[in-house]
Amino acid sequence: MYTSALIIAALCFVATSYAGDESQAIITKYENDIKPDGSYNYEYGTSNNIQAQESGVGSVYAAGSYQYTAPNGENIQLEYTADVNGYQPKGNHLPTPPPIPDYILKALAYIEAHPFTRIQLKK
């Protein structure tokens, strides 16, 4: 449940910091369903094109997405899951690590192809 609260807070921050007059934005869609077994889902949309949805089970698992238009005009879309493996966001706007250089890949392949015997030091 904390994940959904954080996302809602982040989206509210984005909505308030958006360049232009967002003070007149209204909620155009809102659905919220909480079941006795702890599962839930919600979805909402606003007149300034913020869309979000999430479903999950208590504090065990959550999956969802949100999208909005950034102040620079870029369409931001993010999908995520949160479970025992942590929070895992996916989006084209997120930074990615550089590719591993060829010489490192060749060195790793060599090490894997030529295992060494472990040396036991005596006291």
Rank of each mutant, 00 (worst) to 15 (best):
Y68H: 02
L94K: 06
N72Q: 05
A15Y: 12
F13W: 12
E79H: 08
E74H: 14
D33P: 04
N41W: 00
G58A: 05
V14Q: 12
Y80C: 01
I26F: 07
T96K: 11
G38M: 02
I26V: 14
N85H: 07
T69D: 09
I8D: 03
A15H: 15
L11Q: 02
S55N: 08
I76V: 11
E43F: 00
F13L: 11
P71Y: 11
Y87A: 08
A25N: 14
G64C: 01
S23F: 09
Y87M: 06
A25V: 10
A63W: 00
A52M: 08
I104L: 13
S47Q: 07
G86W: 02
I7M: 01
I26T: 14
A15F: 14
Y68Q: 05
A10P: 09
I8Q: 06
P99R: 07
Y44R: 01
D83Y: 03
Y103P: 11
I76G: 08
P89C: 05
G58F: 00
T96W: 04
Y40I: 02
V84E: 13
K29A: 04
A25R: 13
Y68A: 03
V14C: 13
D102N: 09
L11E: 03
D102A: 12
E22C: 14
Q77V: 14
P101I: 01
G86I: 05
A19E: 15
P97Q: 08
N75T: 15
A25I: 10
D21R: 10
P89F: 03
Y44N: 02
K35V: 01
A82F: 06
K29N: 09
A25W: 10
Y30V: 04
F13N: 12
T81G: 00
A62N: 04
E22W: 12
G86Y: 01
F13G: 15
P97F: 07
Y80Q: 03
Y61D: 09
Q24N: 11
H93Y: 08
P98C: 04
A82H: 06
S65Y: 04
G38I: 02
T69N: 09
N48Q: 12
A52L: 04
F13A: 15
S47R: 05
S47A: 06
D21Q: 10
T16A: 15
P89D: 00
G86M: 08
V14R: 11
L11W: 01
S23K: 09
D37T: 02
A70I: 09
I104Q: 11
G56V: 00
P101N: 03
Y42A: 00
I27P: 00
